[in-house]
Structure formats: structure tokens, C-alpha cells
Amino acid sequence: MDDSASRPTLPEGVRLRSGRIQIYFSRNGKSHHITLPHPVTAEGINAAAKIRRDLITKAEWGILTDNDIAHAKGDFVVDDSVIVSDGVLFQEVAQKYLKHCDANLDSKKDYVSALNKHWMPNLALVPVHLITSDMIRDIIADSEFKSDKTLNNCLVPLRGVFEKAIELRLVTPADNPMAMIKNKKVQTGLPDPFTRDEMNALLNWLDKNLEGKDRFYYWYFEVAFWTGCRPSELTALRWNDIDWFNGSVIINKSRVRGIEKQVTKTHTAREVYLNDRSKRAFEALNDLGLSTEYVMICPETNAPFYNEKPSRLRLTDAMKQTRVRHRPAYNARHTYATMLLMADVNPVFVSNQLGHSLQMLIKRYGRWIHGDQNKLEMSKLTTD
């Protein structure tokens, strides 16, 4: 007998069948219909709704097991006084954190991925106030993080979840388990710019060997080497961002994985001044007539770039052919920065051109600020 008369008062996915409570849901192409051992009371129905949510959560995270189903059906000793555990679950706080997180879309996708892969399988159904630092350390020890930097990145959303729990007064600051979890120390590498001779060799090869539509990439790298713009900034650049009269470009947008954002990586707009070579490159790109809106249009697709792979492959070819030591194409930006500093350009101006703070510029490029002076100083130390 289907007790459908009671259905309007029942939670979603809960129904009464022959005087018993049944829950049902579908996830990942599979339907589940589970009859529970709980009494047909208000408490039993509320417990059924909670059990359904927990099973759905496990199904969504890919951790639902036959044992979970058997446990829900009552293949265990039932204590009617404690039907479900008390407390707000980690996964509920995580969803709230993601909903309120003001990170950009790209970062939020990374947070979701980190939570799904490393934290949800172990913590999703644990009341957030019961999670300890030892539990988190055990998860870290059992997980295979590719590097310490990867671990540090995955700890960002985990900290965010517990900050949200504190904000919701589910955990006190004194009981925050993340207070005992420290980031791993990661050695920061020095920039590895191309020398001016290497840059010229690469650009000369591109100039002589790229023909037809591929000719675009020669001008692309003329702009990259002589403006220091990030690849994400170049692919978002529009023609109306160029001030032809004053010889400058406004950098205030970026494009990452095909998604355009109205901010740069550092959330700071800047005006980049052009020299003769970057001006000539922009004029040549304009003459190509690929687009009336975007400066950089992928010649293979006639659409804005999804990522920097096509341009990177061209520079990789140039490095192989010229025997220039391989470095990421991003290092065109480092090359511009170090050329300015080696030419004794004011560091404040350089930091403004790159969109760095002066402190960050000195931290990253300090060894180039004095040009060849460092070598001159070392030459004073004789070994005779």
C-alpha cells in the first residue's frame, strides 16, 4: 500500500510504503530505493531525510559503498535514541564557503577540485566541530601530493572552510584545527630570462621562418618581449586599449582558459609605454586585419585564444632551431624586466610597467638592478 496521502508533508525523496519509510534518489545514472528501519514518526522521517542527504553526498563524491546502503537499510543494531549524529557536516560548510567565496572563477574551480579530490572523501560527512588537526595530518600523510606547492594550494580552500565555520560559530577560533597545520616551505626560483642575444636570435628565426598565417606569431613575440605583458593580458587586449597618439597601452583585463576577466592577475590596471619595436609590432598586427576588436586572434581558429599553447609551441620550435636553452615562453616578460633594469631604468618605472609593487620587483629582480655592477664588484676580489 502506498501511503501517498501523507506525501505532501514529507521531505523530498522520502515516502511511506506499507507503513515503512523509504528514501529514493538517482545519482550518476543509478537509482536507489532504500527502505529504512526507522519508525514512522516525525523524528524517523527527519532522520530519513538526513540519511538521504548523506547518501547523496557520498554518491556525488564517488564514495558511496554497498556497506553504506546496507547500513541505511538496517543491517546493524539500531539505536532509536540516536538516529543521526549531531552537528553541521563538513560538506555543508564547504558548500557555503564556495558559495560565498569571492575568488575569481578560475581559482574557485581549483578550490572545488582540491576539495573533491583530497578533503571530501574523508571529511564530507564528519561534523565540522569534530574534525581535529590529527585527522587532517593523517589525510595529508595518506595523500599523494605532487609537490609541497600543490599541498599548500590544496590547503587554501580547506582553511577557507574552517574560517567559514568560525564565522558561522560552528567552531571557535581556539578549536580551529587548521591553526596547527602549517604550509610547507617552498623554494622560490629566480627568474630565468633570455639574454638580449638569445632574444634577438629567437625573434630573427621567427621573422625568417614563419610565413602565411603563422607570421602572426612573430609579431606576437615582438610585443611580448618588448612590453613585458603576461600572456593572459595579451590575449585579452583590445584595439581600443591602445593609445596610438601617446604611444601606450592600457592593461586592465586578462583571459584565462578562455574566460575573460575584467582584472589582471594582480587586480591592478596599468599603462604600459611602447618603444619603437613594440609600436611597429602593433602596427603590423593591425595591418594583418585579423579582428576589429581583439589585438591577438588565433590565426588557426580566427577566435580569441583559449590559452597560450599555440604561441608557446612556436617559441619552442625557435629555441630548438637556434639551440637557445629551453625556457617557458612566459620568460619573455622576465626578459623585458631585466633589460630595463640592466639599462639602469628607474626601478619605480619598471615596477609600474610590470604591474608589480616596488618591493616585489626588488625581491624578484634584485640581482639585475645594478646591471653589470655586480660583476665589477666581484672583479675587485683577486685570487693572486
Rank of each mutant, 00 (worst) to 15 (best):
S291K: 05
L290E: 01
Y306W: 12
F282I: 05
T301L: 04
Y294A: 00
Y294H: 13
Y294K: 08
N307Q: 07
E293G: 02
M296T: 02
P299D: 06
F305K: 03
G289I: 04
F282M: 10
T301A: 00
Y294G: 02
M296W: 07
A303V: 09
E308V: 11
L290M: 14
A284R: 08
P304Q: 05
K309M: 12
D287L: 15
N307S: 12
F282W: 00
Y306R: 12
F282T: 03
R280I: 13
P299F: 06
L285E: 03
A281E: 09
L285G: 01
P310F: 04
P310H: 06
V295C: 12
S291E: 07
E293L: 06
N302V: 00
A281L: 07
L290A: 06
E308N: 14
S291A: 12
G289K: 09
F305H: 12
C298G: 08
V295G: 10
P310S: 02
M296D: 00
L288D: 02
F305M: 04
T301Y: 03
I297H: 09
R280K: 14
Y294V: 01
P304Y: 05
D287G: 09
E308S: 10
E300Y: 10
L290C: 03
F282R: 03
L288H: 07
T301R: 06
E293A: 07
N286Q: 13
R280S: 15
N307I: 08
T292K: 13
E283Y: 10
S311M: 10
L290W: 09
L288S: 07
F305S: 03
L288G: 04
A281S: 07
E293M: 06
N302A: 15
R280A: 15
T292Q: 15
A281Q: 08
L288R: 06
S311I: 08
S291I: 08
T292F: 10
N286P: 01
M296G: 01
A284L: 01
M296K: 00
D287Q: 11
K309C: 09
S291P: 03
A303T: 14
F282H: 03
V295H: 11
I297S: 08
L285K: 09
K309P: 10
F282K: 02
M296S: 00
M296L: 13
A281I: 08
E283N: 09
P304M: 05
K309W: 11
S311G: 12
V295L: 12
L290F: 10
P299S: 12
S311W: 05
C298A: 10
E283C: 09
P304V: 01
E283G: 04
M296V: 02
Y294E: 02
E293H: 06
D287N: 11
T292V: 13
S291D: 11
A284D: 02
C298K: 05
L288P: 03
Y294T: 04
N307R: 07
N302P: 01
I297C: 13
L290H: 06
L285R: 05
L288T: 00
L285H: 07
T301K: 13
M296E: 00
N286G: 13
D287W: 05
E308A: 13
C298R: 04
N302R: 11
Y306G: 10
S311T: 13
S291F: 02
N302M: 15
A284E: 13
A284H: 07
D287E: 14
